[in-house]
């Protein structure tokens, strides 16, 4: 009578990566989100990319653009970090170098995402 749990409890998360299918799902869900977001982003940059300083700030700082830009930045760097992680895991030999590169990629992705998000918010709130 000691086990009410199903055996799946002992297997879950214990694949070779120790993270189960979390990475796989995160890669796909961010990919789905990025389809409309990046189409919006490219059109936005195509239309507003050449704008002068005041007009560019007005575009980026408007509520809809600012929110979509923050979401896009988050999804881009999450998706990008997951993708580069797989490439490193596939091609880099040696556990030490691999670990260092994985940490660097993750750190860079977090820093860049936060820098971009902070820039957007400061434009939106700075007026």
């Amino acid at each position: 009578m000691s086990e009410f749990r199903t055996p799946i409890k002992d297997a879950r998360g214990l694949g070779s990566s120790h993270f189960g299918v979390g990475h796989w799902w995160a890669q796909r869900t961010t990919a789905l989100a990025l389809i409309p977001l990046l189409l919006w982003f490219v059109i936005g940059i195509a239309v507003h990319g050449g704008a002068d300083y005041a007009a560019a700030r007005e575009w980026v700082g408007s509520p809809v653009t600012a929110v979509l830009m923050v979401v896009t930045l988050g999804a881009v760097f999450y998706h990008g970090a997951l993708g580069v992680q797989v490439v490193i895991e596939d091609y880099v030999d040696g556990e030490g170098l691999k670990l260092v590169l994985l940490l660097l990629v993750r750190a860079a992705a977090i820093l860049l995402a936060l820098a971009g998000i902070f820039a957007v918010l400061s434009i939106a709130f700075g007026g």
């Binding site: 300083y53 990008g80 993708g83 860049l112």
Partner: peptide, 24 residues
């Protein structure tokens, strides 16, 4: 697909650079 993904990682630097410049 893989190569273009890596390239886009570099492109994301440009995206952030443009936004930070606009904020600066």
């Amino acid at each position: 697909h893989r190569l273009s993904g890596l390239l886009l990682g570099l492109g994301a630097f440009g995206m952030v650079y443009w936004l930070v410049a606009l904020a600066s």
